[in-house]
């Protein structure tokens, strides 16, 4: 798995090193030079490898612990010595969580908010990205600067007045209300990211198609648009993770327990069971986290490529 996944970012692939993942620091010298390496260097390289594995294990441990604890009954969790391998685990914690109707209700709310947010944000960001990277107009540069600056606004300082605004319109505890603030929150970064992708497709391709008789709009949709699929996926993934995992605004806007998103539901589960039953809490956390982690493992490299494409537009 090449984390850089740069092939997905159009326009950046040219400067790519051959053979993906070539190490810049010369740790894997080509061919014969390895022979001349002193023994010390080989040991150091092994040591670094071992260090990498230790760090990886340390970083993954909390996730492992979450899943492992989810399979243990309370009496096995409340022992002086922790159980590190739940070999004879049980599914009872999961059964209890899945018997909670609140879980399904929250799942539906999360799905609705995330779906609506993504749909709106991607379309809006896409047309804006096309505008800034395919047109020359007065105010273009100011717009890009504004997009950059808007990302600096601490949403954590705005939620009170966002709440008031939605309250005034009767949109508190309504999916649409949360969607409004989510779309505004993820749009700037999505525009920034997509702009890098659109700019990465050379305009000459479109112009060539126009010479061949396609209209401008036709050329864009026949030529450029198909090349933007990775960019759209990348920003879609970004938006999905932001909206699906968001907690702060959901906490402020969705005050009705029946309208909780999944993160709020999980926090509720923690607060009712923390003192008594960590197993159930971990089962809930596992159910919330594992699908997202799996999804993330599959699509992460596209998103990283997008982040880099937006940040250092080629």
């Amino acid at each position: 798995m090449s984390a850089a996944g740069t092939a997905t970012a159009p326009g950046r692939s040219e400067g790519q090193l051959p053979g993906g993942g070539v190490v810049p620091a010369g740790a894997e010298p080509a061919g014969g030079r390895g022979r001349r390496r002193p023994d010390g260097a080989r040991w150091r390289s092994r040591l670094l490898g071992a260090l990498a594995v230790v760090v990886a294990v340390a970083w993954a441990f909390p996730i492992y612990w979450m899943v492992a604890s989810a399979f243990l009954p309370t009496n096995r969790l409340r022992t002086p010595t922790p159980t590190f391998f739940p070999v004879d685990g049980t599914l009872s914690n999961f059964r209890r969580v899945l018997a909670d109707p609140g879980f399904y209700a929250s799942f539906r709310v999360s799905l609705a908010v995330t779906g609506l947010t993504l749909l709106v944000a991607i379309v809006f960001a896409f047309v804006a990205a096309v505008a800034v990277s395919r047109f020359r107009f007065r105010g273009r540069k100011s717009f890009i600067v504004a997009v950059l600056v808007v990302q600096m606004i601490p949403a954590e300082g705005l939620f009170i007045s966002q709440y008031q605004m939605l309250d005034g319109w009767g949109l508190v505890n309504v999916v649409l209300g949360l969607t409004i603030v989510y779309v505004a929150a993820i749009l700037p970064f999505t525009i920034w990211m997509l702009r890098g992708f659109v700019a990465g497709v050379p305009i000459e391709l479109e112009e060539a198609a126009m010479v061949d008789g396609l209209s401008r709009v036709g050329a864009f949709f026949r030529i450029t648009f198909p090349l933007l699929a990775p960019g759209l996926v990348a920003s879609g993934v970004y938006g999905f993770l932001q909206a699906w995992n968001e907690y702060t605004l959901a906490l402020v806007v969705m005050t009705d327990p029946a309208q909780r998103t999944l993160p709020l539901w999980l926090q509720g589960l923690v607060e009712t069971n923390r003192a008594t039953d960590w197993g159930v809490v971990m089962a809930g956390a596992t159910l919330v986290a594992v699908p997202v982690i799996v999804f993330f493992l599959f699509v992460q490299h596209r998103m990283t490529a997008g982040l880099v494409a937006g940040a250092v537009k080629g």
């Binding site: 970083w59 996730i63 699906w244 956390a285 997202v292 982690i293 999804f295 493992l297």
Partner: peptide, 8 residues
Amino acid sequence: AWGTPVLA
């Protein structure tokens, strides 16, 4: 670590 939702 990166992919885990913050609340989890």
